[in-house]
Computed example of a mutant assay.
Amino acid sequence: MRYQNVELHNVCDLIEDDGGSGFGILRLPRHILAEINPGARNMARHGAGCEIRGMLADGGQARVVLRAVDRNTTPPIVTVYHGCFCGQSVHLGKEPTEIVIQPPPTLPVLSRISLAHKLPFDPRLVRVRLPNIHPVRIEAIAGDWTYPPREALPARTMLSYGSSITHGACAIPPEGTYAAQCARRLGCDLINLGVGGSAQMDRAVAEHIASRHDWDFATLEMGINIRQWPREKFRAVVENFVGIIAAAHPDKWLFCIDLFTNDADFEDQPTKGVGFREIVREVAGQCRSGKVVHVDGRTILTDPTGLRTDLVHPSDLGMQEMGANLAAVIARRL
């Protein structure tokens, strides 16, 4: 969405009426929040995939003031990119943190590299990438920003829906999620709609994705958050969720990912999510468009040492493998 003279990428609505200073952000529209599960409603406030974007004039300067609202085991890190190149990494605190941004002295070289390698982002585009798993208050955006033109951005956009794994719960930098790693390898922009602990495939979320026309292909990670559900219930929500999106976009590729490698895969007699992978495969195979693809999550995260000790969430190394493997799967179809 446009805010003054910058783009708030991956942001649908602002939170300005809660009595706090500055404003918060929502990755889902405010009008659907009452129709989705409470966990997803809360996770929509997190910054996964969200960026403050603007062009910075030669010799100009910009500033943003940000504040992390909460704390968890993953630190709230902001990275500042100039196109595809990282220039700063900043640890946010509960008190406002000012980030001053200037064009790097190497900008002419970065421009030549970007042109020679056909990089997807213009290096004159400043991208302030917000923490994945934290709500952030934006206290101020000021300076010599101008609104980014379309040609400064990638030609294609990937949309990713899923659990905390897609959301990026244990990815330390904003660009560390498997979805961001995948989009980078494909030269695409990213819309991250991961909702940690809450990927219940709400109908309102499916209808929202179906109503959007700003994405070119999508990944839908389904199953890990509802492993305790009966198989019949899981099948019904997967059929509904995928069906709504596929019907609205029959010409777009949908990559339906079942459960990534997880703790149940190391049990002799697993009790969680039994049969879920087969259900996702069957639902994807039944879609008539021919553009719905099943992806076995075990083929995306193959190395068990890419998991953290809970054996559910990938580490930064695991995220890197997942991004590379998923990009290879998608590239074969595009």
Rank of each mutant, 00 (worst) to 15 (best):
H82E: 15
P103C: 05
P154S: 03
E98M: 11
P154W: 03
G143W: 00
P135C: 14
L110N: 09
H117R: 14
S163D: 07
P104K: 03
P75E: 05
I101Q: 07
P148D: 07
Q61E: 10
I141Y: 00
T73D: 11
I113S: 06
G162R: 01
E95F: 14
C84M: 07
I77T: 15
R71V: 11
A140I: 01
L92S: 07
A142K: 12
A62K: 11
V69S: 15
S160F: 02
R63K: 11
L153Y: 09
L153A: 04
H134E: 12
H167D: 04
R156K: 14
L125E: 01
N72V: 00
P148H: 05
L153E: 14
P96F: 08
P76V: 09
D70K: 07
H82I: 15
A155S: 12
E98R: 13
T106A: 07
R129G: 00
P148E: 02
V126S: 02
A140V: 01
K118D: 06
E151D: 06
A68P: 13
R124K: 15
T79F: 00
I101T: 04
I101Y: 13
A155E: 11
I141Q: 00
R129L: 01
V136Y: 12
G59K: 06
G59L: 04
A140Q: 02
K94C: 14
P148W: 02
S111C: 08
Q61W: 07
R71Y: 09
F85G: 15
V126A: 07
P131T: 08
V109G: 03
H117W: 13
K118S: 09
L66M: 07
L119Y: 09
P76K: 12
V136F: 13
S114V: 10
E151K: 04
I101R: 05
I77Y: 12
F121T: 04
V128E: 08
T157L: 04
V69G: 13
P108W: 13
N132L: 10
R63A: 10
D70M: 05
R127I: 00
I99C: 09
L107F: 03
V69M: 15
E151M: 00
I165P: 03
I138M: 10
D122I: 04
R63V: 05
V100R: 15
